[in-house]
Simulated assay, not measured.
Amino acid sequence: MLWVKAFHLIAVVCWFAAIFYLPRLFVYHAMSEDQASRERFKVMERKLYRGIGTPSMIATIVLGFWLVSYNWGYYHSAGWFWLKLALVVLLVVYHYLCGYYLRQFRDERCERGHVFFRWFNEVPVVMLLGIVILAVVKPF
């Protein structure tokens, strides 16, 4: 069980690294003025999303459910767990929303500006705070 937990935490860290950095790339991409920069950002965004972000998200979810399977009776009745799970679902939605914006940038039809992406970049911070506090403190 400790190995599963260790790999789950590693996957979470990798997923959040991608989820924090990808919208920051969107900020710079939205500010770029030359075609060479835009093409470079497209490659960076695609590699981060497909090569690190999505595999880490999948590993996080699979390993998380594996951990829960060890003691389903406890988790099933824990209110904090269900709220944490809801935040993880919102994070998955956020991840796929990043994929939507990535495709918009790829097709050069993104109408959002750098200010939007600066605010968009803060959303996973709030979710991380909630997820960690719920998992560690278990307030209810």
Score class of each variant (00 low, 15 high):
L85T: 12
H76I: 02
V62F: 09
N121Y: 02
V88G: 04
L85R: 09
L67W: 07
H95C: 04
N121A: 14
V62C: 07
S77Y: 01
V125N: 14
V62W: 01
F117S: 11
S69F: 03
F65Q: 12
E108F: 03
K84R: 11
E108I: 04
F117E: 09
S69G: 03
E111N: 05
M127N: 02
H76T: 11
I58S: 11
W119M: 08
W119P: 00
V115P: 00
G53Y: 01
V68H: 00
T60D: 06
R106C: 00
H114Y: 13
Y74G: 11
W119G: 11
V126I: 15
L85G: 12
R50Q: 12
A59G: 12
L63Y: 01
F65G: 14
R46M: 10
F117I: 07
L85A: 15
E108R: 13
L85W: 09
G79A: 01
R38N: 14
W80P: 05
L128K: 06
F41E: 09
R118H: 13
G99S: 04
V125S: 12
S56H: 12
V93S: 02
G113T: 09
G73Y: 03
L85P: 01
Y75S: 04
K47L: 15
L128A: 15
G79I: 01
Y70F: 15
V68P: 01
P124V: 10
I61D: 06
Y74E: 13
H76E: 15
N71M: 01
G99M: 00
F105P: 05
C98R: 02
G79D: 04
G99I: 00
Y100N: 13
D107A: 10
L63S: 13
F120T: 07
K47C: 08
G51R: 05
V115D: 08
Y75N: 07
I52E: 08
F81Q: 06
V125L: 13
S69E: 03
G51M: 05
L67Q: 15
E108Q: 15
V115Q: 13
V115E: 08
R106P: 00
W82C: 11
V123S: 05
Y49K: 08
Y96G: 09
G73L: 03
L97H: 01
R109Y: 00
R50W: 01
A86C: 02
G73H: 10
W66M: 14
Y94N: 02
V126W: 10
V115M: 04
E39S: 12
F120R: 05
K42N: 15
Y70Q: 15
R118D: 12
F116L: 12
S69Y: 08
V92Q: 05
V125I: 14
R40F: 03
F41T: 10
F41W: 11
K42T: 11
W119T: 01
V126L: 15
R106F: 02
W66V: 07
V68E: 03
P124S: 13
N71S: 12
S56R: 12
V88R: 09
F41D: 09
T54G: 00
E39N: 14
G53H: 05
R38G: 11
A59W: 04
M44N: 08
T60H: 04
H76S: 15
W80R: 02
C110R: 10
Y100W: 14
Y96C: 08
M57I: 02
V115W: 07
S77G: 00
T54N: 10
M57T: 04
L63T: 11
G53M: 10
